[in-house]
Design a protein around this nucleic acid. Structure first.
Ligand SMILES: [Mn+2]
Ligand SMILES: [Mn+2]
Ligand SMILES: [Zn+2]
Ligand SMILES: [Zn+2]
Lengths: 139, 139
DNA sequence: TTATGTTTTGCAACGCTGTTGCAGGATAAA
DNA sequence: TTTATCCTGCAACAGCGTTGCAAAACATAA
């Protein structure tokens, strides 16, 4: 378990530090997309905010996490596939529940390809669906 | 022209003020989605930043503009259809050019409907496609 | 194990973004 | 023209995100 975290860091040529371990474990244990603020809150006073920012940036560059667009600020989630900095090959849907506020990856839902007007070339797509999640709709 | 602006304000029961006129005209003349910073820059020192924030908020509530999700902060664009605060019925694609940086509405491209997992209910969708726009791809 | 070069961290400081309260000014309607 | 209501500018503030720098931690090889 903790070994997975260590391996992930090693595989990406990153030094094994407590902050990186804790942040990775937080992503693993919570199943949702996390913002910088979520992490800061979740980790208490354990690390400086700046360190958290830099860890997120490093993880993004290494392709360990990917950005999740959100109306109220950027969130991040683990990459399930093998990604690199400028090659985050995700095309799955992100869902944000307007009731519980949680945002998560719907890995199994691919964004359908779209016929763009002439001359346009797509490089990256980001689809956010907002609504009620399964837990919140059965109230 | 200016008359359209006055009518729009009147139709939404908004008082006719210089700041609102100028912001509406800016949205009409530029064809792209604008951020608060774009407007602040475009209007010079003419109005206080706070007034621009409040004008955007008012226009959103009245359904005059809608949000455009963007990796580097929120942008806004005119609603072509009749919208109200909590009923922005847009389902068109937004495109951001990674070369010229412009973001705009592709009004004619509808977001395809997606089959969500059981229990999930969609209320709103936001699809941002990043890539090269027509102008930038013919370089 | 210890020594070494390199990477990472915490701290301080800074600029930018977005919000609120309040008093004075502008607007629309009578 | 008067009046009630709405809008604006100003000041202040909290939060987000970045940078430079010195001290601490890490990985590697002696
Ligand atoms: Mn995802
Ligand atoms: Mn649009
Ligand atoms: Zn929910
Ligand atoms: Zn372009």
């Amino acid at each position: 378990m903790n070994q997975f975290v260590k391996n992930t860091l090693k595989d990406h040529s990153l030094r094994n530090t407590l902050c990186r371990e804790d942040i990775l474990e937080t992503f693993l244990s919570r199943e949702v997309a996390l913002s910088h603020g979520d992490l800061e809150h979740s980790l208490g006073e354990k690390f400086d905010r700046v360190t958290i920012y830099r860890t997120l940036k490093t993880f993004l560059e290494k392709g360990i996490i990917h950005k999740v667009l959100d109306e109220e600020g950027m969130r991040y989630a683990l990459c399930k596939e093998r990604c690199t900095e400028h090659n985050h090959h995700h095309d799955h849907v992100h869902f944000k529940c307007s009731e519980c506020g949680q945002t998560n990856c719907l890995e199994s839902l691919h964004i359908p390809s779209i016929q763009l007007p002439a001359g346009y070339h797509a490089q990256e797509m980001n689809l956010l669906i907002q609504g009620l999640c399964a837990a919140c709709s059965e109230n």
